[in-house]
Design a protein around this nucleic acid. Structure first.
Ligand SMILES: [Mn+2]
Ligand SMILES: [Mn+2]
Ligand SMILES: [Zn+2]
Ligand SMILES: [Zn+2]
Lengths: 152, 152
DNA sequence: AGCCCAATGCAAACCGTTTGCAATGAGCAG
DNA sequence: CTGCTCATTGCAAACGGTTTGCATTGGGCT
C-alpha cells in the first residue's frame, strides 16, 4: 500500500487564467459557461455531479445540457476526471496539468460525505492480475464505503 | 494480496430445487419466472444484466419488469449480488448460501469479456483507511479494466 | 374447490444523459 | 473596429436503464 502522493489538490488551485489557457492552447473557445464551470470545480475539493455544478452556477448562467457538454469536453481534454461513487451518477474533479488524477474515495452510505483517499494498493498487485490473465493496459476503479463519524 | 477463496462458483452450482427452497423458506412464491431466472443465473458464471437475463429467458417467459422485480427480491434475500462493471448497467451473480460474494472482475474495454478475480488486497489496508478517517462498517467496490488477449 | 394476497403484465413515469436544430457569439481576418 | 464563420449554446425532444401504478393472474393455504 505505497502512498503515492499526487498533489492534485494543489494543482486544482491553479487560477482561472491558467485554466482557460489550457482551453486556448487547444483552440477551444473561452465562454462564460466554461469559465464559470471551471471556477466552481476549482473551488470544490470533491467530485461534483453535473446537476451539482449546474446548481452552483451563478443563477441561469447556462443550460444543464451545456454543463454536460462542457464536462465531456474537459474530460476529453484531460482537464477533469470522471468518478462513479456507486450511485449511477457521473461526478467530476478538476485535474492539474499532467496529473492523471488517479485516486479513490471513501463515501458515507448514510450522508454521502466524501473523503479523498490517496492510498492505493501496489502496482505489482495489479500487474500480477494483468499478467495472470494476459491483459494489457490495465487500470482499476476502487471506491470505499462506510459510515462516517458523524453518522455513526 | 491474500487470496481468500470463496467457492462461490461451486455454490452457484447448487441445483434448482435447492435454490427454490431458499425462496420457500422465506415464504416467497415459487413462480415460473423466478425458477427460470434462477436457472439462467445458475448456468452463467459471470454477472448478467436484467436485459441479458430477459433475453436468455425461454421466449416470453415473463416481462422485463418482472426480471427487475425478481432481481430486487433475490438481492434483498441475499441470493444474488449486484455488480457495476463501469457502464451504468446493473449486473447480477448468483450467491451460494452464506456467501457474501465479495470478489472482483477484470473487464476488457474492447469486447467486454469478463474474468473473475478472487484476489483482493489485505483487510489491514482497508481497516487502516477506515480507522484513519473514523469510518465504520467499511466495504469497497473494485473492478479492473484492460485489453484482453484476443483484443490486443 | 375456493380464497387471498403475492406476483405479474402492461404501459406510463422516471432520472440521468444525449442529441437535433436553430440561434448566438468568440475569435479571427480584413 | 467590423463583419464573417463556425464552435458553442438553449431548448426541447429522445434516449436507455430502471421503477411504478393498477388491474389481472395464480401460488399456496385452508
Ligand atoms: Mn477526489
Ligand atoms: Mn463474478
Ligand atoms: Zn488505485
Ligand atoms: Zn475486494
Amino acid at each position: 500500500m505505497k502512498s503515492r502522493k499526487r498533489h492534485h489538490h494543489h494543482a486544482s488551485r491553479a487560477d482561472l487564467p491558467a485554466l482557460t489557457d489550457r482551453l486556448r492552447r487547444k483552440s477551444r473557445k473561452i465562454t462564460g459557461a466554461r469559465q464559470a464551470i471551471l471556477e466552481i470545480l476549482r473551488r470544490h475539493p470533491h467530485p461534483m455531479s453535473n446537476k451539482e455544478i449546474f446548481a452552483a452556477l451563478p443563477k441561469g448562467d447556462c443550460d444543464l445540457a451545456t454543463v454536460y457538454r462542457s464536462l465531456h469536453l474537459l474530460e476529453n481534454m484531460g482537464m477533469v476526471k470522471r468518478f462513479d461513487l456507486g450511485d449511477g451518477v457521473a461526478r467530476f474533479e478538476l485535474l492539474g496539468e499532467g496529473d492523471d488524477g488517479h485516486h479513490h474515495h471513501l463515501v458515507c452510505t448514510r450522508c454521502a460525505a466524501v473523503v479523498e483517499i490517496e492510498e492505493c494498493f501496489t502496482r505489482e498487485f495489479e500487474e500480477q492480475i494483468a499478467a495472470r490473465n494476459g491483459f494489457k493496459a490495465i487500470t482499476h476503479k476502487l471506491e470505499f464505503f462506510g459510515i462516517c463519524p458523524r453518522c455513526q
